[in-house]
Amino acid sequence: MKLYIKNMVCSRCKMVVKSELEKVGLQVLDVELGEVEIKTPPTNQQQMELTASLNKLGFELIDDQKSRLIEQIKTIIIEQVHYTDAPAPLKLSAVLADRLNYDYGYLSNLFSAVEGSTIEKYYITQRIEKVKELLVYNELSLSQIAYQLGYSSVAYLSSQFKQLTGMTTSAFKNLQGSKRKNIEDL
C-alpha cells in the first residue's frame, strides 16, 4: 500500500517520515520523495496518530487524487533540478507526461487551477534556487551552471535570475546567498 505525503523534499525528510511511520507501528517497505510504501494499511488509530505527528513536522498526508498528482509534479521537478547530475531535460512537459501517464495539457491545467501558478513558473523558481545554491558553493562557473541546469545560454540564465531575484548573479554571489529560501517554502 502507498501513502502520499506532501512537503517531502529531501533525504532528511525521507528519514523523518520513515521514523514517524515506524513510531505508530507501520512496517515501511520503501520511502521516496512524496510517497511511502507500507506493508499493511494503517488502522484508524494509526492514521490519526500519523496525521498528527506528520502535521507537527510540516508534512501532510494526501488522500485525494488531484492533490497527489500535484505533489508528484512538484517531486519530479525537484528531483530533476536538485538531485540529478545530468543536464536538464529538453522538454519538462514530456518528462512529466511520460512519468505520470497523463496528457501534459491536463497536468498543466490542474496545476494552475490548484496552485494558482504554472508548472513552468514552479520549475523556473526551482532552477533559480539551484543556481543560488551553486553560486554560494562557488565551485562552478556561471557557464557550467547554465549547462548543468539546461539553460540555452549564460545570458538567458542571468536574465531569468535578475527577473526573479531583482539582482544580478554577481550581486547575489557577493551576498553569499543570504536570500535563499528553503525548497519547501517555494
Results as ranks from 00 to 15, higher is better:
138 N>G: 15
142 L>K: 12
160 Q>M: 12
135 L>T: 08
132 K>M: 08
150 G>S: 11
144 Q>V: 01
150 G>E: 10
145 I>F: 00
137 Y>T: 13
154 V>Y: 13
148 Q>F: 03
138 N>M: 04
152 S>N: 13
161 F>L: 01
140 L>M: 08
129 E>F: 00
162 K>F: 10
126 Q>E: 11
145 I>R: 00
139 E>I: 05
144 Q>Y: 00
134 L>F: 09
157 L>K: 01
162 K>A: 13
151 Y>S: 09
150 G>I: 13
131 V>I: 06
152 S>G: 13
162 K>S: 13
158 S>G: 07
130 K>D: 07
153 S>M: 10
138 N>K: 14
131 V>H: 01
133 E>F: 08
124 I>C: 02
158 S>P: 04
154 V>Q: 11
142 L>T: 11
161 F>C: 04
145 I>Y: 00
133 E>Q: 12
133 E>N: 08
125 T>C: 10
158 S>R: 14
142 L>S: 08
122 Y>V: 00
155 A>I: 12
140 L>V: 02
129 E>D: 00
140 L>G: 03
125 T>H: 14
158 S>W: 02
144 Q>R: 09
125 T>G: 09
137 Y>V: 14
152 S>Y: 09
146 A>G: 03
131 V>Q: 03
158 S>T: 07
159 S>P: 04
155 A>Q: 14
125 T>V: 08
145 I>M: 02
128 I>W: 04
125 T>K: 09
159 S>D: 14
153 S>W: 13
124 I>M: 13
122 Y>H: 02
152 S>T: 14
136 V>F: 06
130 K>E: 15
149 L>I: 10
159 S>T: 15
133 E>V: 13
141 S>P: 01
139 E>T: 12
141 S>Y: 03
123 Y>A: 14
142 L>M: 08
161 F>H: 06
148 Q>H: 09
144 Q>L: 04
131 V>M: 05
147 Y>L: 04
150 G>V: 10
151 Y>G: 07
152 S>W: 12
127 R>E: 12
144 Q>K: 10
155 A>T: 14
145 I>P: 01
155 A>W: 09
132 K>T: 05
152 S>F: 13
130 K>V: 10
131 V>L: 04
132 K>H: 04
136 V>H: 08
158 S>Y: 03
160 Q>E: 13
161 F>V: 05
138 N>S: 14
145 I>N: 04
151 Y>A: 06
159 S>Y: 08
127 R>D: 11
127 R>G: 05
148 Q>G: 15
139 E>Y: 06
156 Y>R: 09
141 S>K: 07
126 Q>W: 03
145 I>V: 11
154 V>D: 05
142 L>Y: 15
129 E>A: 01
128 I>L: 05
150 G>Y: 12
145 I>D: 00
141 S>V: 03
138 N>P: 07
122 Y>K: 01
132 K>L: 07
154 V>S: 06
133 E>T: 12
135 L>V: 06
157 L>R: 01
139 E>R: 15
132 K>W: 04
124 I>D: 06
136 V>D: 08
160 Q>D: 09
138 N>I: 06
155 A>H: 10
136 V>T: 11
161 F>N: 02
143 S>V: 03
123 Y>P: 09
122 Y>N: 00
138 N>L: 10
127 R>V: 10
135 L>A: 09
127 R>M: 12
138 N>W: 03
159 S>V: 07
131 V>W: 01
128 I>A: 01
